[in-house]
Amino acid sequence: MTIFETAVRPVLFRVGGGDAERAHEFTLGRLAGLGSGARALLRRRYAVSDPVEVFGVRFPNRVGLAAGMDKNGVALPAWPALGFGFVEVGTVTAKAQPGNDKPRLFRLRESEAVINRMGFNNAGAAALAERLRALGPIGVPLGISLGKSKVTPLEEAVQDYLTSYELLHPYADYIAVNVSSPNTPGLRTLQDKSALAALLAALVGKVPVLVKIAPDLTEPAIAELLEVCLSSGAAGVIATNTTLSRDGLAGPDQARAAEAGGLSGRPLTERARKIVHFVHEETGGRLPIIGVGGIVEADDAARMFDAGAALIQLYTGFIYRGPALVRAAARARP
């Protein structure tokens, strides 16, 4: 086990009396406060150089931070120092919103999993744009995940996404279109063929646009979605978001199975990998894939690359394994 697992993680898991969201905010605050000297020390330990170009963007390595970890971009300079080759902020919405009622984030330790029903809590696209303008480049590619504001009717979703896009695309190396979170009512209907085509018609053009898909879609539904992505000029696919399934939970965690929200982490490992493989086969490699879901060990990263992912992202695995996982995953060979 690493120092993070034996010494750091137990402390973080006790923050706020074990409240996962308070620990998350505490961690972001500490990372945001790291000075340049501390970041340089971390970079020497964790950074891995393995450059690759995907959808026209050059990445210093293949491992990124998934959306949801740093929604408002408050700790952006820290993530490259921890070894990440790219960072995705958000999901951000056109209108600032508090998200769902608390508690809304739960650790399932025996399963190395998390359930969240955050509900796109964020300060809004304008606030993120101002932060990014003031900060400047962070040294690695930046992705920005866009979602629909909860108060916006589905029939006005395109304009809602477009508002965020116009504010934020000047700061993005790519835009991720999140139409697959289970925590905003009706959002997943935007994965339907006509709705997705209208959305991509409005957004594709200025920077690479990727579509993030749900792991709960059937293969025929995924195939239809991929047809829209290819015909609409999407630059790639992010597979996958969190799942509504509760399969694979360890015995002690079954008591949490009734909690509403999306499940991430180890129970999603095989499902996410199979979807990445399906997307790769279905498109003949024409759509680059960012693989995300259940990557908890370096071998999970290697298998995700073998399945067809060009890049991968970490979220829950990082919570349980820390920056050593970033380094190990970046050294895993596709």
Rank of each mutant, 00 (worst) to 15 (best):
F120L: 10
L146H: 09
A301K: 00
A96I: 07
K102P: 06
R44T: 08
S111H: 07
G73N: 04
K95H: 14
R321A: 13
A113K: 00
A81R: 04
A214E: 05
H280W: 14
S164Y: 11
T93V: 09
E227V: 13
P153I: 14
R117D: 01
A202I: 11
A176R: 03
G85M: 04
L12V: 06
A201C: 08
R43W: 05
L167F: 06
P185D: 08
N122F: 03
I295P: 03
R44I: 02
V296S: 12
A329S: 13
Y315V: 05
T242H: 04
F86V: 02
S194H: 14
G236E: 04
G33N: 14
Y46V: 07
S180K: 08
E25V: 00
A310P: 03
G35M: 15
S164L: 14
Q254D: 09
G293Y: 07
V11G: 00
D160I: 06
V48K: 00
E282I: 06
G205N: 05
L287V: 11
T242Q: 05
L249P: 06
E112R: 06
G124F: 11
I238T: 04
L311P: 03
L41A: 15
E166Y: 06
L249R: 04
V92I: 15
G294M: 14
D306F: 05
F55R: 05
L31E: 01
V177L: 15
D160A: 14
H169L: 10
K150F: 11
A81L: 03
V140Q: 09
E88S: 11
H280Y: 15
D19P: 00
I115A: 00
L314Q: 04
L287A: 09
E155T: 12
V48T: 10
G85E: 03
G233S: 10
G285D: 09
L225M: 14
D216H: 05
I115K: 01
R133M: 10
I295A: 04
K71A: 02
V179C: 14
G143W: 11
F4P: 03
I238H: 04
R22M: 07
V179G: 11
A301E: 02
L249S: 04
V140Y: 11
R327T: 11
L34V: 15
L167D: 01
E21G: 03
Y315G: 01
G294N: 12
E5S: 04
R39N: 07
D19S: 02
L42R: 09
P103T: 04
S36F: 13
F84C: 03
P170A: 12
A302I: 12
R45P: 00
I138C: 10
T283F: 06
T240E: 02
A134M: 13
L146I: 14
A307Y: 10
S49E: 13
G186I: 02
A330E: 01
R133Y: 05
R45D: 02
A250V: 02
E270D: 14
R303A: 15
A329W: 03
